[in-house]
């Protein structure tokens, strides 16, 4: 299945900021994070198709995953 992964802020350092990956069925977000060599502790917000998700959320074909470190402002 194809999943689009978007990275933001410091997570972009040394990585593709927006890329489509060919993944196995039943892949979870935590697997993607591991695959991209991202430290779990650096991840604060996970979205799938703009809705809140967590490390254990299973991905589906066509999903858009957005991964953010802690961010804030106003």
């Amino acid at each position: 299945m194809k999943v689009r992964v978007k990275l933001f802020a410091t997570l972009r350092n040394g990585r593709d900021k927006d890329k489509v990956y060919e993944l196995n069925e039943k892949t979870k977000i935590k697997d993607v994070i591991e695959m991209l060599n991202i430290d779990r502790g650096d991840v604060k917000i996970l979205l799938i198709n703009g809705q809140d998700a967590d490390f254990e959320t299973e991905l589906n074909d066509g999903d858009i995953v957005a991964i953010f470190p802690p961010v804030g402002g106003g």
Binding site: A9, K44, I45, G50, P69, P70, V71, G72, G73, G74
Partner: peptide, 25 residues
């Protein structure tokens, strides 16, 4: 030590919010 005040805001300013607010639609 806080991710927002220690890293996010110093590195990107408040503008760091553009993408996250947009990604949430």
């Amino acid at each position: 030590d806080n991710g927002v005040t220690g890293q996010g805001l110093p590195t990107y300013g408040t503008a760091v919010l553009v993408n996250i607010i947009n990604e949430n639609g």
